[in-house]
């Protein structure tokens, strides 16, 4: 598999675009099986379509052309540096290499996309990327995720989740609650009766693309698909988690439900094998319903 991926990516990832055009289905299949650890960074960078998002420059080169973020935004970024994967060895050290890189990526992103600035949650996206690529690549990949990759079937990006008033996030949570009725009707009814709305547990599922809560082995497999296929993956994964855990959740009242679904304990509900979670998630069709529900939300 390593060798296949090496060949598919080519030198510096240059061959992937061509491969995608020639063999889209095969590429999709290989991504869904999991990208080999050694190629993950490069593959994410290419799959996200960053090469289409301008390229060149990078966070350091852009200080001159964009306005520096306000002090309030910078302070907000700084306060979160110690609070992004605080227990991960790479991000633990105050002023450590990765904390500094995280700062520069978020700073540059706030400058590059002033309408969004910095919203809590973005740091987790940037941090996952930084574990696999240098800061400039992480910056561009983050921008591609924000904007939506041209190769994603749904043409919307994470930016919508962070814009003022968070209309995109609220729409996503509405869509999720309705999809849950289709996928796990008994659980959905139970949760609605107990008042456990997706706002109470799902905000960071979307807002950090599960980086806030999934264990890394699961998270990385989810991200392989998420980076290649876009945010609809997040719906599928969330639905798969609840569907898989349905029997255990059905007997619970409000407090039991919010506790079981809390960021600290979500891992207990997952299938042990990351591949199992991915397979379950990909069996759930969402695209058509997402479009219908988005239209319903607009009204």
């Amino acid at each position: 598999r390593e060798r296949k991926w090496g060949k598919m990516l080519g030198r510096g990832g240059a061959a992937l675009d061509g491969y995608r055009r020639r063999r889209p289905e095969r590429l999709k299949r290989r991504v869904r099986k999991g990208i080999p650890e050694s190629w993950r960074g490069l593959a994410w960078l290419e799959l996200s379509g960053r090469s289409c998002s301008g390229g060149g420059g990078g966070p350091n080169a852009r200080h001159g052309t964009y306005c520096a973020p306000s002090t309030a935004v910078v302070m907000c970024i700084m306060r979160d540096l110690n609070r992004t994967f605080p227990n991960h060895v790479a991000f633990m050290r105050r002023q450590g290499v990765l904390q500094k890189a995280l700062f520069s990526v978020l700073w540059a992103s706030a400058a590059y996309r002033p309408s969004v600035g910095y919203v809590q949650g973005m740091g987790f996206l940037a941090a996952v990327l930084l574990l696999y690529m240098p800061d400039e690549d992480a910056f561009w990949t983050l921008q591609a995720l924000m904007q939506g990759s041209p190769s994603w079937p749904e043409r919307w990006g994470m930016e919508q989740l962070y814009s003022a008033g968070m209309p995109g996030l609220r729409c996503s949570l509405f869509q999720f609650s309705r999809l849950l009725r289709d996928v796990a009707p008994r659980l959905a009814a139970r949760m609605e009766r107990e008042g456990v709305e997706p706002e109470l547990y799902g905000t960071h599922w979307f807002n950090t693309a599960f980086a806030y809560t999934l264990p890394f082995p699961h998270l990385l497999r989810v991200w392989d698909v998420f980076v290649a296929e876009g945010p609809k993956t997040l719906f599928r994964v969330g639905l798969a988690v609840l569907q898989y855990a349905e029997a255990r959740l059905l007997g619970l009242r409000f407090e039991g439900l919010v506790a079981a679904l809390s960021a600290a304990r979500l891992a207990e509900l997952l299938p042990a094998e990351p591949g199992d979670l991915i397979q379950r998630a990909l069996r759930i069709p969402v695209s058509r319903r997402l479009r219908e529900l988005a239209a319903e939300w607009q009204k």
């Binding site: 809590q120 987790f124 905000t203 807002n207 407090e255």
Partner: peptide
Amino acid sequence: DEKVASTIGVDFAVKKLSVYDKRVKLT
């Protein structure tokens, strides 16, 4: 815990207390 992640969205805790002769559950 010095190492606590930023809260994204909302988090909960439940705590039971005895106040006077009343048992109170706080969410």
